[in-house]
Simulated scan of single mutants.
Amino acid sequence: MIHMRLQGKVGIVTGSGSGIGRGIALAMAKEGAHIAIVDINEEKSNETLKEINQYTEGMLFIRDISKPENIDGIISDVVAKFGKLDILVNNAHASRQALFSETTMELFDLSFNTGFYPTFNFMKAAYPELKKSKGKVINFASGAGIKGQPTQASYAAAKEAIRGISRVAANEWGPEGINVNIIAPIALTEGVKQWSQSAPELYEEMVNNIPLRRLGDPEQDIGRTAVFLASEDSDYMTGQTIMVDGGSIKLY
């Protein structure tokens, strides 16, 4: 059910050409938000933009945001087009798995340069506009960091670092009316679908370890949680990690 809870809002979603980011971008567009897609994959991003434009007006930035200079100008261009910025979703992240003893500085660089540093840089760049709009920041963590998933040292470290700066920003920016929250998802993305076909037994084992016995849908489950966090319904929440993982991890 669509309620248009984000009517007239303006958001940026990184990594929104596909996967969870695409799901969030579409969920927000269907609720009335103008969405700026930021992604490195031009073909997939254009497909997402076409879908967004069926519901509202979007814009597109094809950028490699692991390079800080490629973030320059995105905020100002969005504000020039739509007049403001209300929502920042830092979803983009890339990493590779390795045993702890085989994890290299190059793997840490990949994870931090594509996930942690872009999150930090976008938050700093967006802060003046979010202060004006009393906006919402949605960052992404992972059960891999919260549980300490084997083979995920570089990814877990970057995700927990994102949680750390999110809590700091929530405390510093709260008095200015900016909410900063975190989603830790499990989702059936294109990559997971490919993996499920190559390793069906491992996939079935993973699903059976989720209390709700399924993976989340990028739009209906993860995206609609992001809509809630971007809307006025979450105005009294900040600094929180929201587990959208079918009950896999219970925080207290």
Score class of each variant (00 low, 15 high):
45 S>I: 14
29 A>Y: 00
74 I>W: 02
85 L>G: 08
32 G>F: 14
84 K>L: 08
34 H>L: 08
44 K>G: 05
63 R>T: 04
72 D>M: 02
107 L>P: 08
85 L>R: 05
77 D>P: 00
89 V>K: 07
89 V>I: 15
26 L>F: 00
37 I>V: 12
59 M>C: 09
108 F>S: 04
97 Q>N: 05
99 L>F: 09
28 M>L: 11
33 A>M: 15
80 A>L: 07
107 L>C: 10
43 E>V: 14
66 S>F: 09
62 I>A: 00
95 S>D: 13
63 R>I: 04
96 R>I: 05
60 L>W: 05
80 A>G: 10
70 N>M: 13
37 I>L: 15
96 R>G: 11
67 K>C: 05
42 E>W: 03
102 E>L: 11
44 K>W: 02
64 D>Q: 07
69 E>V: 13
49 L>H: 10
24 I>A: 04
26 L>K: 04
70 N>R: 14
76 S>G: 09
61 F>A: 04
38 V>P: 03
78 V>C: 00
88 L>V: 06
24 I>W: 02
32 G>K: 11
70 N>F: 08
102 E>W: 08
34 H>D: 02
67 K>G: 02
92 A>T: 09
45 S>F: 13
30 K>V: 11
62 I>L: 03
32 G>W: 15
76 S>D: 15
52 I>W: 00
41 N>G: 13
53 N>W: 07
36 A>C: 14
110 L>P: 03
37 I>D: 06
30 K>S: 02
67 K>L: 09
90 N>Q: 00
28 M>P: 01
56 T>I: 15
31 E>S: 07
78 V>I: 00
104 T>V: 03
109 D>H: 14
74 I>K: 02
28 M>F: 06
101 S>G: 01
33 A>F: 15
97 Q>T: 04
82 F>S: 12
98 A>N: 15
87 I>P: 01
35 I>K: 09
82 F>K: 03
60 L>T: 07
75 I>L: 02
38 V>Y: 05
31 E>G: 03
87 I>A: 14
99 L>G: 14
99 L>Y: 15
66 S>W: 06
42 E>D: 13
87 I>F: 04
50 K>V: 02
46 N>W: 08
96 R>A: 07
88 L>Y: 05
110 L>N: 06
63 R>K: 15
63 R>W: 10
68 P>Y: 00
89 V>Q: 12
75 I>A: 01
42 E>Q: 14
31 E>I: 05
91 N>W: 12
55 Y>M: 08
26 L>Q: 02
63 R>D: 01
70 N>P: 08
91 N>Y: 10
96 R>H: 10
45 S>D: 07
93 H>V: 09
72 D>L: 03
102 E>R: 13
85 L>W: 11
33 A>S: 15
61 F>R: 05
62 I>E: 00
36 A>K: 14
24 I>V: 08
25 A>I: 14
88 L>D: 08
104 T>A: 10
58 G>N: 04
74 I>D: 02
90 N>D: 00
42 E>V: 06
28 M>S: 07
105 M>P: 01
75 I>R: 01
102 E>I: 09
71 I>Y: 07
60 L>K: 06
53 N>I: 06
34 H>P: 05
53 N>R: 05
107 L>F: 11
